[in-house]
Design a binder for these strands. Structure first.
Length: 640
RNA sequence: GCUGAUGUGGCUCAGGGGUAGAGCAGCGCACUCGUAAUGCGCAGGUCGUGGGUUCAAAUCCCACCAUCAGCUCCA
């Protein structure tokens, strides 16, 4: 039995301790270990996150949370956001405060001020934040009634805060945090005091609408980040630099892969080297799809208005489509490939024995995207979907979806991507009944479960014609990209009156799925470029080897080496320019060519090449035949 | 589309009312070279586009276009 005024605290390792009621979490941490007290930012009490200043009045299980923990990071960053707001309040009196949450790598705060923040201002704000940190103000939590809270903010002219309070459910506990002369509406928890922050950094300013709605006022958002160690901040900044260094727009120009010109905003031009990449990807794609029973088709880019009305795109997708007129008739440029594919299916009668029919198409689609969202190859106005439509019997759905899941898995493995899966359900703007949607969603779930894949559910994020599974792959910098999707569709078969003749000799309606693996070939190339930092594996590399002659007298032999490798199907370049070897090596190196073959007197004497790999360096001399065999094997196995 | 910033040779950037500059890349010449930049020389720009102010505009003003960072949207 506890003494009446003691509370029993259970720690994660199972240890139980007793403290006088009213002992704060921080004091408990201190009594456990000084190190813990130093590192702990907040605590999880009976599963609920709390401030360390919270006094314990009842028995509880307590876990102290440091920056290592995701919840700790959020509290740390969120506290930094409050400090930034305090600094802005001091430097820019009269600023109205909106919201300031923690996000993936930091935090932001939205401000409403008459003047625009300049990079110079960010420096000033940062300085002020450092002063606030040095002052080590405690974060003090208190509660107010709704009326008191509204008065508090209205009196200060903080209309956004007042609006937030008015929109909260009536029974919400309104908590506030105060550090120094700054008070903010906030659910918390926060770190104990401003002095707990170490390295803070403001990243950039951007416009953001109040509540993300473009009809609302545009506020100024300052993004920042913070870390408990300077070295961690430096590492983070280095990672950002690395991402910049790998930017596919920059590498795409340097490696002469593609360009986007003023003459065609959002419509990329592929240069010869970029086309090699594309063609290799497509070659691999065709091989894999043939193996798995897909048949390739190609459908027109411009199709008649009535088709798009029938498919529902006219009603549901018009704002993203381009239109044209032919001989007085209305036509649209296809934003999706499915209607074309369906027309092919419908071009003749099908027996149940033929199903599933898998029609694959590398289809060029055009979509009108807002000018502000265009971004290199990642976000364009025309792109090639590696599409396929599978027409099948209802009882084949699960197996077909599993087949696609396996296909996607095999593809991503080749490039060294890990991935995760999301399941999206019925959106507001959708065709079809809840009943059909539920059934379709359940089938997708079943298929995922059958493969033991974990997934996250995105409510209301499906396509207008059916629910979908999305595959998000993670690149070498830890960023994620949505690429593959599988969309189940009970709507199109209905709209286009699809049928097959069943065992009973009657017409029945097939089910269809839409799916892509790369998503968009263009975007996938962008992702690959950044993933590999332009150093593509040999099978994809536009130039697989470059032969470098040391002096003029080695040019003829170099030329023969090139010819021999070309005959073996290797993409090879010759460099007999009148330059130093070092110069030529450097240039090949900056072009990220996998192999440099240096030839001089020694190599000529032995029919060999001195091999240098772009990453492994000098590999020494090798007989030409031996090198050829090794490289061909590397290409064949798609080695990374 | 919205907010803000930017736009000068192929690339990276300087110049900021009075005759357009540098480095790299390119071209020419010399050096004939062994694993990340040899030297010298030459050529290359209607300063994003269109208006306006001015004796004079790359420079100041306006509009448009494009790009970049975000917002919203998405493959």
């Amino acid at each position: 039995m506890n003494a009446v005024n003691n509370v029993k605290i259970v720690l994660p390792d199972g240890a139980e301790r007793e403290y006088p009621a009213g002992t704060t979490l921080l004091e408990i941490a201190k009594s456990t270990s000084p190190r813990l007290a130093k590192e702990a930012l907040i605590a999880r009490v009976n599963g609920e996150l709390m401030d360390l200043a919270t006094p314990m009045m009842t028995d509880a299980s307590v876990e102290f949370i440091s920056f290592e923990d995701e919840a700790g990071k959020r509290a740390y960053r969120h506290s930094t956001a409050h400090i930034m707001a305090q600094a802005v309040q001091k430097l820019f009196p009269g600023t109205k405060f909106a919201i300031g949450p923690a996000i993936a790598d930091g935090y932001y705060y939205d401000f409403d001020t008459s003047e625009n923040f300049t990079p110079d201002d960010l420096g000033k704000i940062e300085k002020e934040m450092e002063a606030i940190i040095k002052a080590d103000y405690p974060f003090e939590r208190f509660e107010l009634s709704r009326a008191q809270a509204l008065d508090f903010f209205k009196e200060k002219g903080q209309k956004y805060k007042a609006e937030l309070i008015e929109d909260l459910p009536p029974d919400t506990v309104l908590s506030f945090y105060r550090q120094g002369d700054f008070t903010d509406l906030c659910a918390g928890p926060h770190v104990p005091s401003t002095g707990r922050l170490k390295s803070v950094k403001l990243m950039n300013v951007a416009g953001a609408y109040w509540r993300g709605n473009e009809r609302n006022k545009m506020l100024q958002r300052i993004y920042g980040t913070s870390f408990p160690k300077k070295s961690m901040l430096e590492e983070y900044l280095f990672r950002i630099e690395e991402a910049k260094r790998r930017d596919h727009r920059k590498l795409g120009a340097e490696l002469d892969l593609f360009s986007i010109m003023d003459e065609g905003p959002g419509f990329p031009f592929f240069h010869p080297k970029g086309m090699i990449l594309r063609n290799e990807l497509e070659k691999y794609w065709r091989e894999e799809h043939q193996k798995r029973g897909y048949q390739e088709i190609r459908t027109p880019i411009i199709l008649n208005r009535s088709l798009w009305e029938n498919s529902g795109h006219w009603d549901h997708y018009r704002e993203n489509m381009y239109f044209t007129k032919i001989d007085e008739g209305d036509y649209a440029v296809k934003p999706m490939n499915c209607p074309g594919s369906i027309l092919i299916y419908n071009s003749r009668l099908h027996s149940y024995r033929e199903l599933p029919i898998r029609l694959a198409e590398l289809g060029l689609v055009h979509r009108h995207e807002l000018s502000g969202v265009l971004h290199g190859l990642m976000r364009v106005r025309c792109f090639t979907q590696d599409d396929a439509h599978i027409f099948m019997l209802p009882e084949q759905i699960k197996e077909e979806i599993i087949g696609v899941i396996d296909l996607v898995n095999d593809f991503y493995k080749v490039f060294g991507f890990t991935y995760f899966v999301e399941l999206s359900t019925k959106p507001e703007k959708a065709m079809g009944s809840d009943e059909v949607w539920n059934m379709a969603t359940d089938v997708l779930r079943d298929a995922l479960d059958a493969r033991g894949l974990k997934y996250k559910v995105n409510e209301g994020d499906g396509a207008f014609y059916g629910p979908k599974i999305d595959f998000h792959l993670e690149d070498s910098l830890g960023r994620t990209w949505q690429c593959g999707t599988i969309q189940l569709d009970f709507q199109m078969p209905e709209k286009f009156n699809l049928s097959y003749v069943g065992e009973d000799g009657q017409k029945h309606q097939p089910v269809m799925i839409h799916r892509v693996v790369f998503g968009s070939i263009e975007r996938f190339i962008g992702i690959l470029t950044e993933h590999f930092a332009g150093a593509f594996p040999a099978w994809l590399a536009p130039v697989q080897a470059r032969v470098i002659a040391i002096t003029d007298r080695h040019a003829e032999y170099a030329c023969n080496v090139v010819k021999r490798l070309e005959e073996a199907g290797i993409r090879v370049e010759l460099d007999t320019r009148n330059e130093k070897v070092n110069y030529k090596i450097r240039e090949a190196q900056t072009h990220k060519i996998p192999y440099m073959l240096i030839v001089g007197d020694k190599e000529i004497a032995r029919d060999s090449v001195a091999v240098r790999h772009r990453a492994k360096g000098d590999l020494g001399a090798m007989l030409l035949g031996e090198f050829e065999g090794k490289l061909l094997e590397e290409i064949r196995t798609k080695e990374r």
